[in-house]
Design a binder for these strands. Sequence first.
DNA 1: TGTTAGCACTCATTCAACAAGAGTGCTAAC
DNA 2: GTTAGCACTCTTGTTGAATGAGTGCTAACA
Lengths: 349, 349
Amino acid sequence: MDLDERKLKILQAIIRNYLETGEPVGSRTISKYTDLNLSSATIRNEMADLEELGYIIQPHTSAGRIPSDKGYRLYVDQMMLEKEEQLSQATQEVKDMQKLLLEREDKMEAILKQVAKMLAVNTNYATMISAPQVKGNRLKFLQISKLDETQLLVTVVIEGNVIKNHMISVNELLDDEAIWKLNLLLNTNLNGLRIEEINLAMIAKLKQQAGVYENIITAILDTISEALQNDDDIEIYTSGTNNIFKYPELADQQRASELITTFEEKQLLNELVQETLTEENSTGIQVYIGNETPIQTMKDCSVVTATYELEEGVKGTIGIIGPRRMDYDKVISTLKTLKSQLDTLYKKD
Amino acid sequence: MDLDERKLKILQAIIRNYLETGEPVGSRTISKYTDLNLSSATIRNEMADLEELGYIIQPHTSAGRIPSDKGYRLYVDQMMLEKEEQLSQATQEVKDMQKLLLEREDKMEAILKQVAKMLAVNTNYATMISAPQVKGNRLKFLQISKLDETQLLVTVVIEGNVIKNHMISVNELLDDEAIWKLNLLLNTNLNGLRIEEINLAMIAKLKQQAGVYENIITAILDTISEALQNDDDIEIYTSGTNNIFKYPELADQQRASELITTFEEKQLLNELVQETLTEENSTGIQVYIGNETPIQTMKDCSVVTATYELEEGVKGTIGIIGPRRMDYDKVISTLKTLKSQLDTLYKKD
DNA sequence: TGTTAGCACTCATTCAACAAGAGTGCTAAC
DNA sequence: GTTAGCACTCTTGTTGAATGAGTGCTAACA
């Protein structure tokens, strides 16, 4: 048995209706809702077929039907195809975002937080955004400065302009010349290298050349290695987690508590980010419906993600998390526009 | 009518019992619970008095009594007096924390997050911790470095060793000597100054001396001013917000949603931090019971805060947020120990 | 005068029974 | 192939009674 035109229309009608109300939808509703002019009995027959095919589910014998994950999937896939053309019309909301982004170009963290918040307010779903993650991880710049008699400041810049600072306490006195020499030594030897390329031999060589400052070199190298391998704790900002309470299917204590924890701990979200970044996709938009999501605690949710790219290899992920019956249309088009805006905005830098 | 010995004992018994169970406690329970050897009828008479005095409340006619804010307050105040001596015995839990703090002295942010998490796990309440806030706000160190042909890195260190970085795009080419001169110019003129002390006259003078690099000076000064006046967005880390679901009196959707939002937005928590930092107190521990808290959304909670001090004027706040019937004894002693540990740990730096 | 036993009373909670209503599946007729 | 009609199922909401915890009050007692 295959999906003919009519079954498709009925399925769409069921889903649309369910997205609005969140209640199981019955045959009589559909009979009036669509322009098919069919009686409820006919709809019932078709619905029985749709259920057999796995597109809809009956929560209990005498209830209407709700879409299954498979049903949502079909709906979303089809929507993605149809809506392709009218993407470019930016909504007022997104224009607001862009304005905000342009105004505060200075502070990445503040921008990302604002974007997350704005998305949450506009969509009424929970949102997350990950700070752009650098792939290359080459050392770009290194500088040691004397803060005062006992403390050195080490500034490390890695590819993608991620800046790390670290303070080192020293015992011996260092004069300006010693520091200048250290800077020269380290920069000439290490610049442009990846973490794997800084091996024991090189370290030994550096220490030897540093002479009496050997132990300082150790401390500095620790700083560098930490800066270069910080892929385990990327920043992720969330907003609107309280929105889950707006959807009864997510708001019971068990589920809510789990979701809140997931958002707070962030480390599970990180897995989601990694997943989206690897699984490349022509549109850059991914939709996970119910059990499709890589995060167990979100199995009753749908997750829509967009990856944005600031420059070659510097990518981040935006995610919107809501109930299965989220407004996919709005969410996807919002994310598409935002994504393209972020892409261009930063690329012109 | 005053509180005699017996009334006090009964009040304590009511509170202790309520802290455990969360259920209104009746006269018969108290009659058995205490070593007073009084019949339930007598207890009832005393409870009627206690209610008239405002220490306990009857949720409805045929229920037991629960403590009022006034009752809790009396209980806590008395506990604080009695427990003074046995503070120093650090629990295993707190020793774990200290170990963790010592191991990872390098990363403030990671430490604070860990402390918050550990506290949350150990107490089963929601926790927050604010990064230490610098009062002085003097410029300690300033450095401009050339990242590449088009970008300068400005590193600003302010009193209390807070480090800020900023990148500036430049059009004209700068050689090493020019940068060296800029560094010298800025450091000699600005070091040790507060933001109010960098006035228009000084800026004009700097610009004049900078000659062709006038516009770079402007950008750098912007960075400095931003770094110096960042008191509006201190970092606050939270953990264990999902713990509120463990207490039915906080777990209904309305309240939970509000609390979650408060924890997520953080800006209300900031007010709490400011409040605790100003309202000085000999012990450094503050207890807000129910409506006493400065944050409206927490009127059904109790909040216990401790201020810690890393060095002169560099202070932060730790807060534990739970239901009115929180285990004040445990929470206060844990915070006291943690506070003293933090105080000494960093002071020796 | 303080303490206690006893009793009537109140109120929240639980449970079963019941009615209402929504929706289905099936059959027979069109 | 479509539809009307009907019996049937299952959820939801309501009602009312039983239960039980706990109180306030009175009268007796030490």
